[in-house]
Design a protein around this nucleic acid. Structure first.
Length: 228
DNA sequence: GCCAACGTTGGC
DNA sequence: GCCAACGTTGGC
């Protein structure tokens, strides 16, 4: 991994008390309902604790700030151009300090794709596409006292935070501004369309969020449309 | 720079 | 376990 990483997104040092909530990702967004096979006397508790029956997503959206902003003296800037400029155009997505976002990263599988979203900037929106090239592993910055995202409550034998590696794939043919996505979202909410429940609007502050394939495909199709 | 939305903390 | 205070995210 590259030398100096700026962080992205959610920081927050949490505390020992309530940590680990495994993974469930409490969600309200679940597209798929799961019927729990409760019956059966023959089967005992299946394996240990179940991997929570969460719907499995395979498309993602990840936010990062493309413009300079100092946080504790450290520049948080990391836009898609910065990812593209790295060796192998690959980087680890460190610094996520929000349980829901972390849990989504833990669900990511190698080869899946994610939108690179530019947040907290002049023109927020989706800039391009990247690919997950390494599944969730320990985010080392939680143990680095010098890092902005150091978390003193995380223990080496039970690390709290994870990250994945992402690789630049391509820019979108045109930048898709949040304002445009929002128009579609409102339209689709009124008439029912693919973006009616998009997490970008229903869970505004989530820095790592899932997309259904319908949402993803619709958004990609906008590349060839005139700006709304 | 403002501030609404919302996650986290911690007293009780 | 409730909930008020607090801190952060991120659009505008």
């Amino acid at each position: 991994m590259p030398p100096r990483k700026r962080a992205r997104v959610t920081r927050r040092t949490s505390n020992p008390g309530k940590d680990d909530d495994d993974d469930g990702d409490g969600e309200t967004i679940s597209p798929v309902k799961e019927t729990v096979p409760k019956k059966k006397t023959t089967r005992k508790a299946k394996e240990v604790s179940e991997p929570p029956a969460s719907p499995q997503y395979c498309r993602w959206l990840m936010k990062s700030e493309p413009e300079s902003r100092l946080e504790s003296g450290v520049d948080m800037k990391f836009g898609i151009e910065d990812l593209k400029a790295l060796p192998d155009q690959t980087d680890c997505w460190d610094g996520v300090r929000n349980y829901q976002a972390r849990n989504f990263m833990r669900q990511m599988k190698e080869g899946q794709v994610a939108f690179f979203y530019h947040s907290n900037c002049k023109e927020p929106g989706i800039a391009g596409v990247m690919k997950i090239v390494k599944e969730a592993y320990v985010d080392h910055t939680q143990f680095d006292k010098k890092d902005v995202h150091f978390d003193g409550t995380s223990k080496a034998d039970n690390p709290k935070w994870s990250m994945v590696d992402v690789q630049y794939q391509r820019m979108l043919k045109r930048f898709l501004p949040l304002s445009e996505l929002k128009k579609y979202h409102l339209q689709h909410r009124a008439k029912s369309g693919p973006l009616k429940d998009m997490a970008l609007f229903t869970r505004a502050r989530l820095s790592v969020q899932p997309l259904t394939t319908e949402e993803f495909d619709f958004i990609v199709s906008l590349e060839d449309e005139e700006p709304l």
